[in-house]
């Protein structure tokens, strides 16, 4: 499977381990994160809780960016901010140069726990976003069928979520987010609850769908392998308060065969592992003291 388009290849030919600035090298900026910080007030404490701080990051149009960091580093907070579900305390987030002021159908989210509506069939779940978009019923049905087919679940239209396996539920959730045709797909550890085989097959399929649909993807994970396998760039976050520690370009000569066995893959993963090691220790220390 050839992942990178020729255009990307020429723009991104950077040797393994080389670290670029936060600014992506080419393409129009889709998501601009400018000096973003988020603090929460927590009950029974005077000290505000800083989830993320001073985040600067640009995601280019059509790019697949993975975001990796220790648990509790504010990855999900950052995703909520991009989604417009919460407002940043400082800085701002731009989509196509316009400041985000709330959730919208230009961004679709895929959650780790699927978040499917249990009273709706697979097909009706996919139609949900289209209903919000006021798409006529007939077209809704057609588009829902199309996206169910895209995720390889034709024939499961009338199944309720509880009648589907975890991997199938996540496919439906992905189809639901794709169906209303957002420019940006935000994925919050979507495969973390799945077993290893299912996860790998879904990773592969996600890349196939991404190639086909040209979405801008921001994919959160705490798995280094997953980050390297999926991302064109990997943003590594620090422990709380979360900042961007480094952004790595991921480039392989070929994605044929077992990519995970590629020596380049090992180099990337070791590099990120080294970056994360101290952060993980710091995060664990934090958990103990806050505990």
């Amino acid at each position: 499977m050839s992942l990178h388009t020729a255009e990307h290849d020429s723009a991104e030919r950077i040797t393994a381990g080389h670290v670029t600035a936060e600014q992506g090298p080419a393409g129009p900026v889709k998501i601009g994160i400018r000096g973003v910080g988020k603090t929460f007030r927590i009950r029974g404490s005077d000290r505000p809780f800083t989830a993320v701080e001073g985040i600067d990051l640009d995601v280019r149009e059509g790019e697949f960016l993975t975001l990796v960091g220790p648990s509790g580093c504010g990855k999900s907070t950052l995703l909520d901010l991009i989604a417009g579900l919460t407002a940043p305390t400082t800085g701002q987030i731009l989509i196509d140069g316009r400041a985000v002021d709330g959730p919208g159908l230009d961004r679709g989210i895929v959650f780790q726990q699927y978040a499917l509506f249990p009273w709706r069939t697979a097909l009706a779940n996919i139609e949900f976003g289209l209903e919000a978009k006021a798409v006529p019923k007939r077209e809704r049905r057609e588009r829902a069928r199309h996206y169910l087919e895209l995720v390889g679940l034709s024939g499961f239209e009338q199944r309720y979520p509880h009648e589907l396996s975890g991997g199938m539920r996540q496919r439906v959730a992905i189809a639901r987010s794709l169906a209303f045709d957002p420019d940006v797909l935000l994925m919050d550890e979507p495969f973390a609850a799945l077993d290893a085989q299912t996860r790998e097959s879904l990773q592969e399929e996600l890349l196939r769908i991404w190639e086909k649909t040209n979405k801008t993807v921001v994919f959160i994970t705490h798995g280094i392998d997953e980050a390297v396998y999926l991302g064109q760039r990997v943003a590594v976050m620090t422990s709380r308060p979360g900042r961007i520690k480094q952004v790595l370009d991921i480039e392989f000569d070929s994605r044929e065969g077992d990519l995970r066995a590629d020596p380049g893959f090992g180099e990337y993963r070791h590099h990120i592992w080294t970056l994360l090691r101290d952060e993980v220790a710091a995060a664990q220390e934090q958990e103990r003291t806050v505990g």
Binding site: G152, L153, E163, M168, D195, Q197, T198, S201, E205
Partner: peptide, 25 residues
């Protein structure tokens, strides 16, 4: 070694239709 193997593994191919042996209720 792989007791938890699910039908996911099999239903990989690009947009391939799911096979009939997917477990259901």
């Amino acid at each position: 070694a792989q007791p938890e193997r699910t039908a996911e593994t099999a239903a990989v191919g690009p947009a391939g239709p799911p096979r009939g042996d997917v477990p259901t209720a």
